[in-house]
Each structure stands twice: as structure tokens, then as C-alpha cells.
Amino acid sequence: MKSHINVRNVVVALVALGLLLLPLYSAVTGNIFILTLFTRIVIFALAAASLNLIMGYGGMMSFGHAAYLGIGGYAVGILAYEGIGSGFIQWPVALAASALYALVIGALSLRTRGVYFIMITLAFAQMAYYIASGLSRYGGDDGLTIYKRSTFGGLIDLSNRVQFYYLCLFCLFGGVYLIWRIINSRFGMVVRGVRSNEQRMQAIGFHANRYRLVCFVISGTICGLAGALLANNTDFISPAGMYWTRSGELMVMVVFGGMGSLFGPVLGTIVFLLLEEVLSQFTEYWALIMGPLLLLIVLFARGGIMGVLGRFSRG
């Protein structure tokens, strides 16, 4: 057996610990901003982890993942607007709507491969974007303010910063754990096998697309949860949040961290959003640095952060 103590795992453990203790730090130092920032980071990390499930393990390069953030968010926002404030209704609806959307567009998109798949997922997400812009009752282009966060019958108070943060963190850790179980299960082995060599998997008796589709739906559903969290975090939902550049950012987070590594997307999201935050404090023009950095990472550090850490682990 290989030793489990290596640079990579130590970093992951430290980051997880850091995330757990963050509210403590925030309370001691009185730094509320960092808690808000990290709530956002944790939510996006969940979205990135879900994208990694299909990109990294399933080989499906979806360029439309922001759609689920929007669908999950709109489910919460619309229900709240219509007077249904209970999270016990809002959240299952958010998950079900995301799953249904994933099922439909997945069934259609998976007929194509390669760059056509990238494009068709993008096109469907844009469609979702325009549908949202057309919802005049719910603010159209301008979006919809959510006046009251989801309620859970007094079990947990989402307006409480610390409670909300821990709920998000629970969802993230739960999501990553779920993904870990999935990728090592029978189902996960099949999905990864299909990514590795589809023809071979078909030849030994697997209906590749059926497994791909289920994986696609699971991923979309998890991302829909992130969408419900995000809507509660920003108290607002608008089509802009599902624009294609948002899907691009999610891809970047995954690749930053290391595609196909379990915790990579979490690290990638932390680094991406922190970098954005830090750079934008120095200069208004942070993308002047972020853009070329992305190019360099693609050119020279394909495994992302996890790949680099992995090199340390071996060396």
C-alpha cells in the first residue's frame, strides 16, 4: 500500500481544517468580510466539484454548467416570490428542476462528441439564459430580489452568517464525499472507463451513453444545490448569473485545481476567487493578470494545483 501521508493530502487536510475553523477566525478578529467571501467560495467550490464529476471523471466537457446555478437559484427565488418560503419545498424543487433539465439536455447533447458537445451544452445554457431574461413576472433581465431566505422550520437560520456558512460547508463536504463514493463505485468505474476508451467499454457490454447520461444528471443536480445556496447567499437572482462566461469561470476553477482529482476543484475555486479578490484590491484591471495566467496554466501546468502538488509528493 502507498502511504497516505504526502504533500497533496497534507495540503488538502489543512485546507479542509482551515475551512472548518474559518468562522472562529472571523469571530476572533472581527473580520466579517472573510466569512462572506468564503461562503461564496464554498458555494462555487461545490459547483466546480459537480462539474469536475462530468469533466474530470466522465470526460464530458460541458460548457453550460452555469445553467444549473441559475435553475437552482430561480427555483428558490420564484417560490419565495410566490410566497412559498420553506426550504423543504424550495430545495427539492431546485434539485428536481436541475435534474430534469440535465436529463433533457443531456439526452440530446450526448448524441454529439468532442467540440460539438462543448458547443451544444453552451447553446442550451444560453437558451436557459434567454428563458430567464424572458420571465417578465420575475424581473426579466433585471433579476429578482429574494426578500426572505429559505426557512427550515426553525432548524437552521440561513440569515445567520455562521449557520449559513456551515450549511454551505456541509453541502460542500457532503457533495465531495458523495462524489468520492460515486467515482469508486461500480457506476463510477464504468463512467471513468467510458472516458478512457468508449469502444472498449461498449465491446465488453456497457451501454456507454446510459451511464454518461446518469452521471450528467447527478452532476447537474449537485450544481442545482449550489444554485439554491447561491441565491440564498446573494438574496438575488438574475440571468446574468447564468451567462456563458460564468460557465467558463467554472471550467477554469476545475482546471486550476486539477481536473479529475477529487479535491482539486475546491482548491481551484479557492485560488481563483481569492486571486480575483486580491488582484482586484491592487488594480481594477485584475483580468489583465488573470487572463494571461490562465493561458500560462493551460500551456505549462496542465494538472493544475493538484498536479503540481502531486509532483512534490512523488519527488
Partner: peptide
């Protein structure tokens, strides 16, 4: 192979 939990 729609078993999602146990390690294969």
C-alpha cells in the same frame, strides 16, 4: 452497474 455507493 447502477450501484453508486459501495467500492467496486
Amino acid at each position: 452497474s447502477f450501484r453508486f455507493w459501495g467500492a467496486a
